[in-house]
């Protein structure tokens, strides 16, 4: 017998992987959580049937979410990660000695518990003493905060489930005011390729532009995500992602990465024509 997991990329496109065994299957207050052991992608975290991260390619996502802003902003001390209950973003952030505090705001405590137990490769750094986990709605956590963070990373699922509120104008406005005067917001920005996703990419970009004077997107290639072509939003109050890149300083830190490097950093902001058209950049 063969067991296959299928991620529905669109109504008419599917992406399947062969499963060795199912490690976890449960339903939390917020969602259905599955953790699968697959042959080619290793462990795979699935929420409400949708693929979140895989052991094989999560490094691409987390490195790109963290090192791009870290190489631009000269003195990040306090970081807010919204979502990110798997611990991947926190793992990359803890590579920087200069960071003093990392607040991870995850709505679903079960996701953290399961990743800690079954996915230590990603979640280990959640026990770093600089990391504080808050089990709360991200939008609620940030609502009352002003002028406090140097960097906010929105590391969440797609906007058709519990994370819907994290793709809205009110949320980006709340992030803007929670950031210091030179703060940066990085957000998981979906794929521009399939039409359904493209619309949410477009909407999210418009909403971010309403609050942030500087806003663009950068791209990377994540094989297990729909179309593989993935975007992050880079929104900032002051810094330009290319002009303010201090590659010498970053390279001297000696941080080990498997995907990110400072040359790729620059290239990631040069976008295909159809993406520029979609976002009117």
């Amino acid at each position: 017998m063969e067991l296959w997991y299928t991620d529905q990329h669109t109504d008419n496109v599917r992406f399947s992987m062969k499963v060795e065994k199912e490690l976890v299957s449960l339903e939390s207050f917020y969602q259905k959580i599955n953790l699968l052991k697959t042959y080619d992608y290793g462990k795979v975290l699935v929420l409400d049937g949708e693929l979140m991260i895989t052991e094989r390619d999560e490094f691409i996502y987390h490195e790109m979410a963290v090192h791009v802003p870290m190489a631009v902003h000269p003195k990040v001390k306090k970081v807010l990660v919204i979502g990110g209950g798997d611990g991947g973003s926190a793992r990359e952030l803890t590579k920087y000695d200069t960071i003093e505090q990392i607040d991870v705001v995850e709505v679903d405590a079960e996701v953290v518990r399961i990743c800690k137990e079954f996915f230590p490769e990603v979640s280990d750094s959640l026990s770093d003493k600089r990391v504080k986990i808050h089990f709360e709605e991200g939008i609620r956590f940030a609502r009352g905060i002003y002028d406090e963070y140097d960097l906010i990373i929105v590391d969440c699922a797609d906007p058709y489930g519990p994370a819907e509120g994290l793709f809205t104008r009110e949320f980006y406005g709340i992030c803007w005011k929670a950031l210091k005067e030179d703060g940066i917001l990085i957000n998981q920005h979906e794929s521009p390729y399939y039409e359904q996703h493209a619309r949410s990419v477009q909407m999210a970009h418009k909403h971010i532009q309403f609050s942030f004077p500087y806003s663009t997107v950068y791209q990377c290639h994540i094989p297990s995500y729909p179309s593989g072509h993935w975007l992050f939003g880079f929104a900032s109050k002051k810094y330009d992602p290319i002009k303010d890149l201090d590659d010498e300083k970053w390279n001297n830190l000696g941080i080990q990465t498997r995907y990110y490097n400072t040359k790729l950093h620059q290239g990631a902001f040069y976008l295909p024509n159809y993406v520029m058209e979609l976002l009117e950049i």
Binding site: E137, R140, G165, T168, E170, I174
Partner: peptide, 18 residues
Amino acid sequence: RNLEIERLIAALSEIKRI
């Protein structure tokens, strides 16, 4: 759901700020 309530509260807070 909680999510919609949070959106409404957040939007009101933003409208006041702006």
